[in-house]
Design a protein around this nucleic acid. Sequence first.
DNA 1: CACTCTATTTATAAAAT
DNA 2: TATTTTATAAATAGAGT
Lengths: 165, 165
Amino acid sequence: MTRKKVKLAFIANDSSSKATYKKRKKGLMKKVNELSTLCGINACAIIYSPYDSNPEVWPSNSGVQRIISEFRTLPEMDQNKKMTKDSQSLRQFEETKEGQPRDGDDRSYLIDQCLKDVNRRIEILGNSRMELGESSNNVAAEAIQTLPIIHGSARVSRVDVHITF
Amino acid sequence: MTRKKVKLAFIANDSSSKATYKKRKKGLMKKVNELSTLCGINACAIIYSPYDSNPEVWPSNSGVQRIISEFRTLPEMDQNKKMTKDSQSLRQFEETKEGQPRDGDDRSYLIDQCLKDVNRRIEILGNSRMELGESSNNVAAEAIQTLPIIHGSARVSRVDVHITF
DNA sequence: CACTCTATTTATAAAAT
DNA sequence: TATTTTATAAATAGAGT
């Protein structure tokens, strides 16, 4: 009767894989919840699998949306770079919590502003779509006009822009 | 000498909180890695904290970007809805793994196509920015032209579009 | 299969350094 | 305050139903 330590490798057997998946997914979600609660921090997890038709998430779909929105506003370089000053990390944490970045970090601020600008313009575009002349051969106009044309009943509600410095 | 079971509540003491954070973050990342490896699935975790200036992620920044891109292409309704047919979930999993959705789910497919269209056009725009007449008072053109204007040295490398049906 | 059961492994709280 | 140690709680692999 040996409940051995498992080798960290893909489980080919499907029923074994599913059994392990169910147990470990539950354990993982519990751990994320505990870490977040104990330390009062924001965290999220997304798990795709053939055993759940939709991604399993913690804390919730909207919670994940909120957290990944923050993540995406960080320039790639800042995502990788480590700052050393505690004051900086604390300030960034406060900004994150408020969801309202100040201009302490120039690049984050600019991107946030840029995003707001684009979304405002998308909104304007939604209200004045009929005013756009289809005769325009402008590349930029074509790019945005593509959306409502492709999706008859769809509405563009948000655009996230990824910027490389 | 009691290493007791801990109550699941916010740890006010900062040094205790930080000690717990470091240990549990490490444990959590290990668990995500194990789940992903053992079951051959896509998963990611993002953790914000005052102790790390940038979000701690698994598997990597680019890996997280890839996974949350998929998550965001799911309409909100599909994110919540549970399908019951195994065939559907298996098909969706295969699509996810290949990163090349087929048209089994009309809406996911349309969104993916739309995204590719926009990004291709953004790419074109990057190559032909100087061809855009600044005399245009077209709202759509203005929306896209805003980006390079705000960020002198920045380049728009990707746009994610959120669509409401 | 989808559960429950438990021997083990693993994570970790608190102590020690 | 960070790291290491170790007693204990928690997770889970494989067995049983």
